[in-house]
């Protein structure tokens, strides 16, 4: 492994301190490379989102980070110990270094203020030196970039379709050119066509801006397409971590195998979960769907 690590997570444990404590994240060790798309797969309730929230210190009680450390190796050459950030430092760290795209495309935007204000909020908080005109221009540019178009700047969330809202979320996540973007099931509520467009967009933006992505989903075949590496989580533990191709061809863990088999193919064969026809790693008869 080269020493171009962006994020090192060590012995990470998150517990929901309820009457019967739930150990949601167990001894997670993870190194994320700069510019890498890491897929985080697993069934519902396995701790994927909890881990992601932990990286952004967004956990609310009763969830507590019990032990472990998460360190962001900033491109400026210094390290940020995320767990040690004070309230104000934490606010400055959030979105500037790590941004998030949330699960519910429908509810992640504030319904009563315009897109312009929601984008502008980011700049006025993190880049107070920017003028109003600058903020506006930057926001408009982001909407153009993401394919929503600057004429939507004054729209309210209810005036946009689900796909557009999720694009606006991605535009917001891009606003400060963060080094890491966490995407928590960003396409779950969308239909496959919009899903494909958005995934393509993310890949292109990644190569354009060079940020890393932690992509969380329960949809393993989707991860196989877009990720460089995939981590499979089961009951709070990362049970398998490897390149997408290795996971696809030779899954080590029984659970990974079961996860792969759980997606039926269109031809009815179990385990033949192919979605796109342009993957040359597969054999001919598998590839035709």
């Amino acid at each position: 492994m080269t020493d171009d690590t962006l994020l090192s997570i060590r012995d990470y444990n998150i517990v929901y301190e309820t009457e019967r404590p739930v150990h949601a994240v167990r001894d997670v060790n993870l190194k994320l490379q700069r510019g890498e798309i890491l897929g985080l797969a697993g069934e519902s309730g396995c701790g994927k989102t909890t881990l992601a929230y932990g990286i952004n210190r967004l956990l609310r009680p009763p969830a507590v980070i019990r032990t472990g450390s998460a360190i962001l190796h900033d491109k400026g050459g210094y390290d940020i110990d995320i767990n040690a950030l004070k309230v104000k430092e934490l606010r400055e760290y959030r979105w500037d270094k790590v941004s998030m795209v949330f699960q519910g495309a429908m509810n992640a935007l504030n319904p009563v203020i315009s897109i312009e204000k929601q984008l502008g909020d980011i700049f006025s908080t993190h880049r107070p030196q920017m003028s109003k005109a600058d903020r506006r221009e930057e926001s408009a540019g982001l909407l153009d970039l993401i394919g929503v178009g600057r004429d939507r700047l004054r729209s309210f969330p209810h005036e946009l379709s689900g796909g557009m809202r999720q694009r606006v979320m991605i535009a917001m996540a891009l606003a400060l050119k963060p080094q890491l973007m966490i995407m928590d099931e960003p396409t779950t509520a969308l239909d496959v066509l919009v899903q494909r467009d958005i995934l393509q967009e993310i890949s292109e933006l990644r190569s354009q801006f060079g940020f890393s992505v932690i992509f969380i989903t329960h949809d393993l075949p989707l991860l196989l397409e877009i990720s460089d590496r995939i981590a499979v989580m089961l009951q709070g533990e990362i049970v398998e971590l490897g390149t997408a191709e290795r996971i696809f061809r030779r899954p080590d863990h029984v659970y990974t195998e079961r996860l792969l088999q759980s997606f039926p193919s269109l031809t009815g064969e179990r385990g033949g979960f192919i979605r796109s026809g342009n993957d040359e790693t597969r054999t001919k008869d598998e590839a035709i769907v």
Binding site: L90, F102, Q103, A108, L109
Partner: peptide, 10 residues
Amino acid sequence: DYIVTAEAKG
């Protein structure tokens, strides 16, 4: 959700 978003936005 939008409150969590706002928090994550710092």
